[in-house]
Design a protein around this nucleic acid. Structure first.
Lengths: 265, 265
DNA sequence: GATATTCTCGTAGGGTATACGAAGATGCGG
DNA sequence: CCGCATCTTCGTATACCCTACGAGAATATC
């Protein structure tokens, strides 16, 4: 099994305000500072819980970051976590926004690459590194994402990079959307792929080898002439990291070419 | 919670051959036809199980397509399913390849649009329709996918469309990869988004409205000047289906522009 | 009929999230 | 120093999930 289930969280009804407060706790602390310590003192704090979740997901996959798992990691009972986090969905939101914000991107006014493309490449590199550190991110849906400081900072940077092209506001936004779509997806696939080789301890090569029957028994050359031709022309690359890198970069460059030529026209 | 978890299956060790046989059963039947009926007769067949799984996932989400759920749907005991399918992962593989193959794409020799871009648009339209019919697909990882007839047929078509550009084999393959990356991701997001509005019975507008606090309490205009500017220039669109359509098409067109200009050079 | 073969599926075991409520810890008012 | 309000901790229970195992039912052949 080794199940590889992706997560598409989505926090419940009226709790949006509560979740926002947790997401933005570092900008504006949740508990008013004046409030004195009343009742039993907590043994943990929210950051410890979130960090433990991330560490566990990094090390053993998203499935390992169960409430039970995180609690064990922290040496407390499972139910104790619910003092810090309303539900697992919220915990996931917090984990996501945290790692989204880990990317080292210049804020408004900070120095940044002069060239437009280099600004995008910076975003791309940081994002790929993020996915590489946290491959479980690839398995989490980005519709209705946690709108926390991490997500907003990255979006601001990407939009500001796209804005230098001088396209109309609408197209600037759409261009940024297309770029994230490609980068998130390609970087996510890349990270999942690397992680799968590690976690299953089986190279993609070995995986394909195990499917030898496919070519010997089932594959019909007549019905797949182009695949066959590309195979014979050695168009499928060698499966190395470098080849994957090149593919990633090829797609991104073509997309940027297309956007840039629109701006020049 | 309404959990929205994505699935990243991955079938176990030496069973690759068994899985392939199931995937390709229609091309080359699993059981040799000569074999006479021996022992108790089955009440179901594999197709019924797969179809029930798809129907359930379509109607109530991937989570509803549990072994228990599918069995109930078919009026049999849960464990009965294991006669037809080695595990839930395999069932998912079969469901995936089935819907991948539902796309109506011309095979080699069949008539197809003359223009290169129209060939890609055909692929795009069919793929979007597929995701729209089966939004749960978006939540399933595509690394080490089920290499069945459905996947291979679609890949053959896309590659053959890219081949008409006359790029070197390596680049033809890479271009096709970039195109699927964009299309699968954008179409998947679109479908997930639509489905989320239905299943939660909350429009994205309402969702954002619920997060009013974000702008009133947390959002810092100073730290997000570009977002603010785009907002004031009404660059964020109106959230209608048409606007989403336009965004999708914009990104795809820019990517195709970039690829095409490479071919002309 | 007996036997071999195959399919059916109840039970059980080990996961998951989380609702509830009892018990522990702390600081304050008296 | 006691009692109490308040907050934290976490065991237990419920309701799901997948699936290993094995007993029993159905069928065909000898």
């Amino acid at each position: 099994m080794k199940g590889r289930w992706r997560t598409v969280r989505h926090s419940g009804g009226g709790a949006a305000g509560r979740t926002l407060a947790l997401l933005w706790r570092k900008q504006r602390p949740v508990a008013p500072v004046g409030k004195p310590a009343l009742g039993r003192r907590p043994t943990l704090d929210l950051d410890k819980v979130v960090d433990a979740g991330i560490a566990l997901a990094d090390a053993k996959g998203l499935a390992a970051a169960s409430m039970n798992g995180v609690a064990k990691e922290l040496g407390v009972g499972t139910m104790t976590l619910y003092t810090y986090v309303p539900s697992k969905d919220e915990l996931l939101d917090l984990m996501v926004d945290q790692v989204l914000g880990e990317r080292d991107l210049p804020g408004p006014g900070d120095p940044r690459p002069a060239d437009w493309r280099d600004q995008i490449y910076l975003y791309s590199d940081q994002t790929r590194a993020m996915f590489s550190r946290h491959p479980w991110l690839a398995g989490i849906s980005t519709i209705r994402p946690p709108v926390g400081p991490g997500m907003l900072a990255a979006r601001e940077y990407l939009l500001s990079a796209c804005a230098v092209l001088g396209l109309p506001a609408r197209q600037t936004n759409t261009a940024a959307l297309a770029i994230t779509t490609y980068i998130d997806s390609a970087a996510g696939l890349e990270a999942e792929s690397e992680q799968l080789e590690k976690s299953t301890r089986q190279s993609h090569d070995a995986w394909w080898h195990e499917r030898n029957d496919l070519w010997e028994t089932y594959f019909d050359v007549e019905r797949h002439p182009t695949m066959t031709a590309i195979w014979h022309a050695e168009g499928y690359g060698d499966g190395t990291r470098e080849a994957a890198d090149e593919s990633y970069r090829f797609g991104l460059d073509r997309l940027l070419d297309g956007i840039q030529s629109l701006a020049k026209a």
